[in-house]
């Protein structure tokens, strides 16, 4: 099952490293990711597609614990997500 997550976080050099590590360690394969800073460079906007047999809430709850995360939304959850941001 693939899931598309929208994440908003405080911008920091290592944030993507933390995020990708959590995804892998919790049993989710990242199949697509896009990250951009806003105009102020203070906030990181991330769109990430992950695949796993595990329930996506197991991952989103762990992502919410990463220091600096402001918001996590599960936008889509289906067997095949054809297009991501």
């Amino acid at each position: 099952m693939k899931s598309l997550l929208i994440i908003e976080a405080k911008n920091s050099p290592e944030f993507l490293e933390r995020l990708l590590r959590v995804c892998r360690h919790r049993g989710f394969t990242t199949t697509n990711i896009n990250a951009e800073t806003g105009n102020s460079q203070q906030t990181l906007h991330i769109t990430i597609t992950v695949a796993s047999e595990r329930n996506i809430s197991l991952l989103t709850k762990q992502i919410e614990k990463i220091v600096g995360v402001k918001q996590v939304a599960t936008l889509q959850q289906e067997k095949n997500i054809k297009a991501t941001a």
């Binding site: 809430s57 709850k61 919410e64």
Partner: peptide, 8 residues
């Protein structure tokens, strides 16, 4: 206290 433990 840790929401990530619920239903884990």
């Amino acid at each position: 206290i840790d929401a990530a433990e619920i239903d884990k």
